[in-house]
């Protein structure tokens, strides 16, 4: 992605990447589930569109602008908290349970991702 984006704007580059993914995974979906794979009602379709927009458009837009405004060293630790949000929602809304190993592991990954994201020097 980074190699490709040296000569293209981020939105166009990401759009090309998503178009390729749509075709590729679309073929996989039809092969695995038959031609009726995409028979979704409008409500189901809307939920999946919301997921796509939340992840590929809103998330990336906010991510890109946060790095531009605050710098990678300030924004990376906050961005790394995304799995903590997912875990919190899984517990609070989804009713999932967590043990001390999973909690420690989650915090360890959180700390590690912050260090990796802020420690990568540019040559």
């Amino acid at each position: 992605m980074r190699l490709g984006l040296q000569n293209l704007t981020a939105t166009t580059g990401t759009a090309i990447s998503l178009a390729v993914g749509t075709i590729l995974i679309g073929i996989v979906a039809v092969t695995a589930h038959g031609p009726t794979a995409f028979n979704l009602n409008p409500n189901e379709f809307a939920w999946i569109v919301l997921l796509g927009v939340l992840n590929y458009v809103l998330g990336r837009y906010l991510n890109f602008n946060s790095v531009n405004l605050a710098g990678i060293s300030r924004s990376a630790p906050l961005l790394a908290s995304a799995p903590l949000v997912a875990v919190a929602m899984g517990i609070l809304i989804g009713g999932e349970t967590i043990n001390s190993f999973i909690l420690l592991g989650t915090l360890s990954i959180f700390g590690g991702v912050i260090l990796v994201a802020t420690g990568g020097g540019r040559g």
């Binding site: 405004l69 605050a70 906050l78 908290s81 995304a82 949000v85 899984g90």
Partner: peptide, 24 residues
């Protein structure tokens, strides 16, 4: 700008995190 950027980073993390929960 820095405070706004950090706020946007938190919002991005919320968008990514909630998208995983929604995907589930």
């Amino acid at each position: 700008p820095v405070t706004t950027g950090m706020l946007l980073a938190l919002m991005a993390a919320t968008a990514y995190g909630s998208s995983q929960f929604l995907a589930k």
